[in-house]
Every structure is written in C-alpha cells, then in structure tokens.
Design a protein around this nucleic acid. Structure first.
Lengths: 351, 351
DNA sequence: TTGGGCAATGAAAACGTTTACGGTCAGAAT
DNA sequence: ATTCTGACCGTAAACGTTTTCATTGCCCAA
C-alpha cells in the first residue's frame, strides 16, 4: 500500500535508478532532476522498504540483543548504553529478553539470521558456553559476561572477582571478623565470580580469624530481605553483610530497618553494581560500581568492529573495571563518597 | 556466505519450492522427501533469510517500540511486558529510545518502514500529538500515554489523574493540611496529569484550609533529593510531601533521612508508580501502583489486533487503572500494605 | 483403453530495492 | 566534420524467499 520507488520514478518522470541515486546521494545526477525526485518522494511520502534494502545490500543496519530475564535498573542502563551507541552509528536494536535456557537462545539466534548484522549476547547462566556452538560462525558476535571466555568470540567481562575482592578487603580493613555473604542465583556467572572474590579475599587476608556465613539469594530485593531476616534470627549475628548485588542489599536493609537494627552502627552492609538508587537509600550504600552504560556502549563498539571487518578481526577479551564506592552503609568514615578504582582504567583492556 | 534455500535444494536433490514447503509445513510433500530436505537443511545449518521472507510475505514479524529517554525501573518493566507479549505472539521487538524532540521521532518512524509490522509509541512529551501526522497512515500504531488522545489511533493511557487524586485524598484524610508536591518534567504528560489530579483533589476536598507548595523535579532521584532539602529549609515545613514519582520520593526520603527528619512521624511522604523497590525502602513507600508490565502487554495486544485487521478495526482509548498502595511512609496505620483499587478493573476499559 | 482425480513436485513470477553496465548527448579537441 | 570525453540517466540483473500454476505419474472407475 505505501508508495514504492517505482511510483516515485513515474511521478518524477525518471527511472528508478535515478530515484535511488538521489535518495542515497550516490552517483551523478543533475540538480534539476534531483529536485524533481525529491519533490515527488515528498509528495508520495515515500520511504524505502527496509526488507528490500537489506536483501540487496546484505546489511540490515540492525543489531540483535539477547538478554536474560531482565529485572531492575541494571538492564535499563545496559540497554540505554547499547541504544545510545547503536544509534550514533546508524544502527537499530532488535532486543529479546527473558532467555533462560540454551535452546531458547539458540532458536532466537537462528531467528535473527537475515534480520541483524551482528548480535550481543548476555547470558550469565553457566551453560552459555556451549550455546555458541550453534551460532553460524559467519555472524559477528559479542559475548557479555559469559561463563567461560572463548577465543573464537569477542568477550566483554565485568571484573566481578576484583570488585568483590576489594569490597571484602574493605570490610576486613574496618575490623569486621564475622561476615555474611548473600549469594546470587546459583548458576549465574556474575554471582559466582563475586562469591569467589569474596572467599578469596577472606582466605588471603584473614583466613583463620574469620567467622563466615553464606546465604542464598537470587538478585532480587525480596531474597535479600529474607536473607536479612534470617541473619537477625541467628544466635551469633554477623557484624557485616555483603550482598552480591545492590537490590539484595536494599532488601536486607529493609529487613534491618524493620527490626530496628541500625546500619552501620549495629551491622555493616555492602552491595554490588552501584545502581543509581544506591546512593539514595538510607544510609547510602557502600558498593562496587560497574560502568553499566559503558558496558553496553562498548559492546556495540566491539560488535561494529566485527561487522566492518567482516569478522576478519582479532578477537579480544576486554575486562570492564569496577571501582569501590565507599558510602555510609559500612561506617568507617566513608563520607562523602570516596571512590577507589580497581584494576586499571575504567574500561581498560587486559589480557 | 550462509547457505541459501537453493543450496539446500541442491543438496537434497529437490526444487526450492519443495524446500520451502517442508520448512514452512505448508502443502503436500511426501514423507521421504520431507526427511531428505530436513536432513539437508540441518547439514548445511540452513536458516532462512529474514529480509527475503519479509520482502515477499510483507510481514516482518517485528514490532517497533519508540521510547523517550529511558531511565530507571519503569522502562525495564515496560519493555519486559512488551517482550513477553510479543514473543508469545511470535514477534520480535525493535526498540529505540531516548527520543525527545519530534523530528527525531518522525525520522525513526519512517526508518522503521518495511522493518516492522506495527509500532508502539510512548511519547509523554507534550508535543507528541502533532507527531502522528507524519506517520504513514497505513502502519498500525498504538500510542501509550500521549498528550492528547487522537481517535485515529489506539491509545493506552495510565490513569494518572485518578491515582494522584486518590493519594491526595488519602493524605487529606489523614489530616494533613500543609502539602507539598514535587512535579515531574515540565512538558511531561504523566507529570502534568498527576499535578492536575493533586490540585483537583485539594480544591474539591479542602480548598480553603490548605497550604500548598509545588517544587520542580524531573522524575529522577537527584531532583527529589534537592526538593526535599529545599523543603526542610523553609520556615514553615509541610506535613506531607507527594512526589510525582517514586524515584523522586526516594530522593526526598534520602534528604529527610540525612537531616534526621523522621518519616512518617515528622513528615509524611508519598510517591507514584510503585516501582518494585518502593516496598523495600525505609519506611516502605505509600504510592500509586501502575501496572507497568501489563501496560506493555496490553500495548502489544492492541497492536496485534490492528495488524491482523489490517487497520480495519475500530480505534479505542483504553485507560489503565491505578491503585492506591498504602504502606508506612504516610503513617495512619497503613500496615501491612493495604491496597485500594481505583476506577474499575485493573485493566478496565472506559470511555 | 480412456479419462478423471489426486498427490507430489518443479518452473517461474513476484516482492522493492541497489548497482553494474551501456547508451545518449553536448561540448571540446582534433 | 569527426572523434573524444564526461555528465547524466535508463535497462536489467541480482538479492533469497513464497506461492501460483502447470506438469507428471499413478491409481481407479467407466
């Protein structure tokens, strides 16, 4: 029903080739005819058919994005980063979320064939490493925070381990010897790495003097709340709690507040991610900042390199740095917010 | 580079027509050949080219989504709703965010031609009503919370007015006579409607006995924080504050906490949206629940109706109901959370 | 034997673009 | 006058599908 290039050509009294040339600004065309064509196009409200363009140019100017179940501020920030960067490069974003199991992701990956020029896959679930085998090797791919790095692909990884290590060290440095850790989903790679960093710091720095406690969570506020309540009921209460993400920390905070347990006076609390709201809870949350938006921007950037090079580029593992953000929730004179950067530049490349 | 249908046909020793029939499950084809073709397709890791399919079928199985600057939990919930509903119907989602001015949106709208089967436009900025004129009338469109309803389009509107009215009545009912309102962005329709509801309730219920104060905000935590501080500095402090959204309420809460002003004892506080985190701040936030995810789901649903009917369906204005959620932040015995529903079914249709 | 009907398949058109190629024409150079 | 050179523009092929239509071969009824 909408106008085609042919109708524009007829209206302007020229051939379709000329119309195409005018609209794409390629090739020589007389000023007079250009004006003619432009007028005709405007009259007919013509805009080219994306499908036909993609078919012939083999470019869709679209990037695919595969995300896990999206929840909370983390993803809106991430998508925002992707979108900003993509739009700046003239790309659209085809997003698909809530992918948990591998088969689903595979199906999506194939469904995107011919619809996108490249794909960003964020699959923090542990079995994602096997997933990529299903990918037609031809399409550029960037993996964000995969369980295992794979030198066949570009990979972006948050330095979860380093961040967790640093914040744990911070807690130990404040003198805490009785710690609790609230974990994330059992098969989530970010969560696992944070746990690993926590354990490593404890082991390295104060192994024998420490009393430890690990509680299960799932990255949502509710689970943090439950964990917080559970802790309060224990005979010997920890002096500091480190939640694997801010949402759970806020949940725990809510439980503490409800029980009139003061933070940080009675108990110290730390999170991870530095979601925007973290500085506005009471007390402001000591946490580890992840440059979420930049993570998205960087992913698109890498992907575009892959696309332009037709995959003929060298693959890299880029580690996105984290930084410790000390606010009031752990006490220890952490105000105003002090920031300590970990592991090189904010977006430094190592390995 | 990836395999085409022609190669599959050759591999299987049949015509491309037969391959197509097998893969789409349409038309008669002998069991033996079917197996042959399927084997060949699998061997070559064939998956059809989306562009070519769209070109011929005139269906992209993709829905466009135009969003404003996305920030915070609201949008991740909304996108989640869209995605869930879209995927259930076999559609993909092409999202594009951060659109502020009209020209940008128009450009996006045209760019989506031939890439999507329909579009969801969320444009809370006041001039969006003029925008739609630029749309080729042919493509199905759903407007979410537009500034003015337009009977040429399907419209989904949050009952901002009703929600604000109800929560203001709640505050008045608790005896507050000195109120402050923190506004949203000046040209944001949701913000404006909430303000209108607030003013109307005051006028209707207690016009002359009330002391009023309106402060500017922009829907982000930071602006709520600033407004909160400003309020504390005033000679005559309000007894209740209603922020046009939860993010700002949380910002204000942070300011109050910092100044050791107790909520709700010293000052009552209410928000709007009921973002997931609202129940986990201290004290839990009294607010107005907006069924964000359902809003997204409903938008896709309406859009699909328009697509299936080739726009030959009757346009509707659907109002998404809101409900008052009473928690502790306003005092008045509101715990555990009591919910009062406003204006018909949760997704009731009026008008 | 003839013909009708049906299942299975293939040939080819169509979708709306971009672009390689060739043609035309005016003016300049010979 | 002839040829050459560009600028300008049109013809047609190509992209990878789906789908219509025709063809083939087979079985069965007349």
């Amino acid at each position: 029903m909408p106008a085609t290039i042919r109708e524009v050509a007829r209206e302007a009294g020229v051939s379709i080739a000329t119309v195409s040339r005018v609209l794409n600004g390629k090739g020589q065309v007389a000023e007079a005819t250009r004006a003619l064509v432009e007028a005709a196009a405007r009259r007919l409200r013509y805009s080219p058919d994306g499908a036909a363009q993609s078919l012939i140019t083999r470019r869709t100017m679209t990037l695919g994005v595969l995300l896990p179940e999206l929840y909370g501020e983390f993803f809106s920030e991430f998508i925002r980063g992707l979108d900003l960067s993509a739009r700046g490069r003239g790309y659209h974003l085809l997003v698909s979320s809530s992918h948990s199991d591998r088969r689903e992701i595979e199906a999506m990956l194939r469904a995107m064939r011919g619809r996108v020029d490249g794909i960003v896959v964020m699959s923090p679930d542990a079995d994602s490493s096997t997933l990529v085998r299903a990918v037609p090797e031809t399409i550029p791919l960037v993996l964000v925070n995969p369980s295992r790095s794979d030198e066949r692909f570009d990979v972006l990884a948050i330095d979860n381990y380093g961040g967790a290590y640093a914040i744990t060290r911070h807690l130990l440095g404040l003198g805490h010897r009785h710690l609790a850790f609230i974990t994330g989903p059992a098969n989530n790679v970010d969560a696992l790495e944070r746990l690993r960093g926590f354990r490593a710091a404890v082991k390295d720095l104060a192994a024998d003097q420490i009393e430890l406690r690990e509680l299960e969570g799932d990255f949502r506020e509710e689970s943090g709340y439950r964990a917080g309540r559970a802790l309060l009921n224990e005979r010997s209460r920890p002096t500091a709690v480190f939640a694997a993400n801010d949402a759970m920390a806020i949940g725990a905070l809510s439980a503490f507040h409800e029980a009139a347990v003061r933070v940080p006076d009675d108990i110290a609390l730390a999170g991870f991610d530095d979601i925007p709201i973290a500085r506005f809870v009471a007390p402001p949350l000591t946490t580890v900042r992840v440059a979420i938006r930049q993570l998205g921007e960087r992913a698109v950037e890498r992907l575009c390199v892959g696309i332009d090079a037709r995959n003929g580029h060298e693959r890299r593992l880029e580690r996105v740095a984290t930084e410790l953000v000390v606010r009031a929730s752990c006490g220890g004179g952490g105000r105003p917010a002090a920031v300590r950067r970990l592991g090189g530049d904010a977006l430094g490349v190592d390995e």
